[in-house]
């Protein structure tokens, strides 16, 4: 569970993790019924529209661009026109 919490990037205390764990096992239990069905010859479905290779021209569409101030407008922490991000390296 600890690894999973780290992988999911969720700040959860040990106590909270415990309470989430029982719900977790309960849900996994439900999935067991999938072993009833024969899927040995079945292809997976990743999308249902049947569309393939929906591409756009490799051209900048200015209608969809945000200005720098629009892009930054909802950020809690900015610095001289940039997003402030948590330190990732050299934290000891």
């Amino acid at each position: 569970m600890k690894d999973l919490i780290k992988l999911a990037n969720l700040p959860i205390s040990d106590e909270q993790a415990k309470s989430l764990e029982s719900a977790f096992s309960e849900t996994l239990e439900v999935f067991k019924n999938l072993t009833d069905l024969d899927i040995s010859q079945t292809e997976p479905t990743n999308q249902v529209t049947g569309q393939e290779n929906v591409l756009r021209e490799d051209k900048i569409d200015e209608d969809r661009m945000l200005t720098q101030s629009q892009a930054l407008q909802s950020a809690k922490h900015t610095h001289e026109g940039f997003f402030v991000v948590p330190r990732l390296i050299d934290e000891k």
Binding site: N9, L10, L20, A75, K76, H77, V84, V85
Partner: peptide, 17 residues
Amino acid sequence: GIRFGNDRSYFGDEARR
């Protein structure tokens, strides 16, 4: 919580699960 919104500690139990 970097580009918009609060950080991930704000998620409720259902979203966490």
